[in-house]
Design a protein around this nucleic acid. Structure first.
Lengths: 238, 238
DNA sequence: CCATTTGACTGGTCTATACCAAGTTGGCAC
DNA sequence: GTGCCAACTTGGTATAGACCAGTCAAATGG
């Protein structure tokens, strides 16, 4: 019985690693073998190979020129993986002193929270306020709202774990995507103090809604990140 | 001779319109016909149909549940098309009084500019500084740097047109993607004044590099946008 | 010798078919 | 009835083959 990984094991994902290996040791603008050649080398069909190429391309490792070939991209700026920047909204690092729990309770949803979560005003939601540190320095502070109906007993869980991992593992509510809005603001006093910022220092305000596979809003996270510590990196495909 | 559109005409793009029509008149969480059924209805292969479905899904119109079916998504927040927010960095609106040209000249690239554009320090670049208004209100101000080698005679062009359209139409340098970094900052005096902001008002700082099909950096745009007027909306797929 | 044609490439698109795992359903045995 | 299992359906993945339009270089013609 082959010792298979339980979760994912699709061919084009395996291909990604192989292709990544291939590209990193090549200089930028080097031409790669043709799609037909590569698919033969890797022993997969061309369609499958193309799927992997598409991903590599969208991640900025490869670029294609029709009728000519595949080429290795130049590394640019900070390499923007699709999931950077916001990742931390979801992935609270492990149970170390880098997390401080301010508050965890159950409240009635305000207008704003209810609207974001698709609830009626006044319905029960859990509220969890935390800050995140990097070597004594407060980097970000956030307030999470989760409908009690979605995750009963949430406050008994280990809240230092990632919110999305808690929802996935204990409540079978995997988060498929997150829609979020970013603003450049001067934070209100409460959050400014938590971040140890000077009066008038700029921050990013994140307003993020996590959406499950059943298209339900599972959480709302409002967070503030120090403007002097965070860069957001994106890539816009045209 | 059929009057074909010159540019694009792929089947799965046509499908997108048909699918969009289908979904908009259905209520959220309504189940759609199966992939096999749809592909038959539209007279395309299932693989082609799936390509369109993938796009619809990534755009948030549809969600899928394995072994069950396709469903219509709920409209969420501000619908985040892939290209929102930054679009204006590229698409300066037409030749109307909503644009003010501050400056257009040719300078030696500074360290920072040279690095972003992949040049050596001191090489010639065009510099164009503009502000953008919405009904008398300054919304954003930007400085664009373009290597003279890439676009000789650029300053003789109509600079109210979009930078990327100028590069595409007059210089055959289509911009394929833009990598950009966003910061939350208090702008320096010069830009603060142009935006008519109070001292200490927060802004977004954009640092955007446009990249051509040949993987060359064609422009660097550094822009400041009023924090009180701009929301950035994104969707993060997990 | 130069211009033109030809043909062997390239990536991009589409088709038809096949199999898998997981959810759903219906019928049969008890 | 109730429980269980087989058959069918679903999206997800992979295959092999085909055609297109554009590139580019070698072969061909003047």
């Amino acid at each position: 019985m082959p010792n298979r990984r339980v979760v994912k094991d699709s061919k084009h994902e395996t291909l990604l690693e192989a292709l990544a290996e291939l590209t990193v040791k090549l200089k930028p603008h080097t031409q790669l073998p043709s799609e037909r050649q590569l698919s033969e080398d890797f022993g997969v069909s061309r369609m499958t190979l193309r799927r992997a190429i598409d991903v590599m391309q969208s991640r900025g490792y490869i670029y294609t020129v029709p009728s000519k070939g595949l080429y290795v991209s130049e590394p640019r700026l900070v390499k923007t993986s699709d999931v950077t920047s916001l990742s931390e909204v979801l992935r609270h690092r492990g149970s170390d002193p880098r997390t401080k729990l301010h508050l965890a309770d159950r409240i009635h949803a305000s207008d704003e929270v209810a609207k974001a979560l698709g609830l009626r005003k006044g319905e029960w939601v859990y509220r969890v306020e935390q800050s995140f540190f990097d070597a004594e320095l407060a980097m970000a502070t956030e307030t999470a709202y989760i409908p009690t109906e979605i995750a009963p007993g949430l406050l008994e869980q280990d809240l230092t774990a990632s919110l999305s991992s808690i929802l996935a593992q204990h409540y079978e509510k995997p988060i498929l995507r997150v829609q979020y809005r970013v603003r450049s603001v001067i934070p209100e006093e409460k959050f400014r103090e938590r971040l140890g910022l000077a009066v008038g220092a700029p921050t990013f305000e994140f307003f993020a809604v996590g959406i499950t596979s059943k298209e339900r809003s599972a959480f709302l996270v409002v967070s503030y990140k120090r403007g002097d510590k965070y860069d957001l990196n994106y890539q816009l495909e045209l």
